[in-house]
């Protein structure tokens, strides 16, 4: 796992107070929602709020776009990297 992916995994665990999940349990390529980590729509809302607080990222109102970013830890890491590089998603 890349350091940023580890950081994102830790961010997800902390933001959602997940019980019984360690960073090493999270497959960065696995889907976060329903299958995989089993997160739900409310978790998506909370992660959205957390991304803005921690990384200053504002998600676009386009649902398909947002769903793409939330697909996996890898996808979120890419979002953070692009945001830091000044790329507008």
């Amino acid at each position: 796992m890349q350091p940023l992916e580890q950081e994102i995994a830790q961010f997800i665990i902390e933001t959602l107070s997940l019980e019984d999940v360690k960073v090493s349990d999270i497959d960065p390529a696995a889907p976060l929602f329903v299958k995989g980590l089993g997160l739900d729509s409310i978790d998506a809302l909370e992660l959205g709020v957390g991304l803005q607080k921690k990384y200053g990222i504002k998600l676009s109102a386009d649902a398909a776009e947002t769903r793409k970013h939330f697909a996996s830890v890898q996808a979120l890491a890419a979002l953070v990297t692009n945001h830091r590089a000044g790329v507008v998603s």
């Binding site: 107070s17 019980e19 329903v34 089993g38 739900d40 729509s41």
Partner: peptide, 17 residues
């Protein structure tokens, strides 16, 4: 959790055991 998701919506699944 596997047994519960068959009858209960994901958002209502107990989070802490």
């Amino acid at each position: 959790k596997a047994a519960l998701t068959a009858t209960i919506e994901l958002v209502a699944l107990p989070r802490r055991y």
